[in-house]
Design a protein around this nucleic acid. Structure first.
Lengths: 204, 204
DNA sequence: CGAGCGGCATGACATCTGTCACGCGCCACT
DNA sequence: AGTGGCGCGTGACAGATGTCATGCCGCTCG
């Protein structure tokens, strides 16, 4: 079979998106058949275009690439999923895999790996940076409960306890308790460090 | 004159860098003659390669694209400078212009603008997003003193006052005073918000 | 069914943070 | 020579934050 590989490209920064399209355009056997700039446009575009592989950025408006991957995996399971991201956060890798991703690439890997990964996933192979995989396994699963994550996310912009208690409909004491347990689980010493730590791990 | 335009490309994420090179490679009159991944490699590469235009990302290890622009502007003033960045922060635009940049593009602008900007700067034209320019003028200059910026930068990762006082060789009271004035100048209510606000403006 | 966990809450306590008033020295500008 | 901005510091105070003990409810798992 030497049909061309049909790729859907999802990435919010147009310049990067079109540059990636140009890059893939150089490959004889690859054709970019659709481009979208938002996570919530992925599924629709995939339905319209007979796509073999979806190349998804994580950080996108509308829905993250990981959420988009989960939906594609559920609705159009024959499409192979390649996650492409700026941040090699172990937690991202973990959740990408749980969402059915076939490959996980970071943007500072050599460009040649992109086309290579696209070809490999079509043969059923999985493509993951071994260093990242090791990191993801080493750090273990996300220890934070759903509520703790929620509070951390809400606290990320510098809101005070009083504001958090209003937006989350909790008492101030409860907010402080959640933050306190999160701080302990992450082995840091205040909410700001907790937010940073959780972000870096991809646990936010 | 129909010599090809020789471009130096500085961007730390290889996949993006090579994709941009592919994109520019599609243009008949443009040739990417050098690629670097760090800000501190820009000057050396520019010296070796007879470059017409330097295309510089801001966020890079070694030195920011803005610092690299300043050095190029001082040492090789005939080279035109195009800043390309993810973040359309008004403060970035301002300091880019002060460093001698000829064009300022954000990565979510259409890809076509890139080649266009490269051609325009060579005719002596300046290329700036009008919306961004307006924002930069509207917000005024950075109100923070050098020390306030220093303390904010150091506080950005969630360090406590005690830690800040050690790393900055100041008393705890002084650290708090600087943070307090920064918080007031930025019209926010705590250090975390101050860090966010300063980042968003490009004042960090 | 009992144990344990997660969600939610309270109250008390120690510490951290942000503000304010004030002082000193240095430098630049008028 | 005086004024004002900035760097740096102190001390005092109010309010925010983090910790701990403790309790209740509902769910799940052995």
């Amino acid at each position: 079979m030497s049909r061309t590989i049909k790729v859907l490209l999802a990435e919010d920064q147009s310049m990067v998106r079109e540059a990636l399209a140009a890059l893939l355009g150089l490959e004889e056997d690859i054709e970019v058949v659709a481009q979208v700039a938002r996570g919530d446009e992925v599924l629709g575009a995939a339905r319209e275009h007979a796509v073999d592989v979806a190349l998804l950025d994580i950080e996108m408006p509308g829905a993250t690439g990981i959420e988009a991957a989960a939906r594609l995996h559920a609705d159009l399971p024959h499409i192979k999923l390649v996650i492409l991201t700026t941040f090699g956060r172990p937690g991202y890798l973990r959740s990408a895999m749980e969402s059915g991703a076939d490959a996980f690439l970071v943007k500072d890997a050599p460009a040649a790996q992109l086309a290579e990964a696209i070809r490999k996933v079509l043969t059923g192979e999985r493509v993951i940076d071994p260093t990242l995989a090791a990191a993801a396994l080493a750090e273990g699963a996300n220890p934070l409960t759903e509520r703790e994550r929620e509070v951390l996310r809400a606290a990320a912009d510098g809101s005070t306890n009083a504001e958090l208690s209003k937006t989350l409909h909790l008492s101030q004491g409860t907010v402080r308790n959640y933050l306190s347990t999160a701080i302990q689980k992450l082995a840091v010493r205040n909410r700001a460090e907790a937010v940073r730590a959780a972000r870096e791990k991809g646990w936010l």
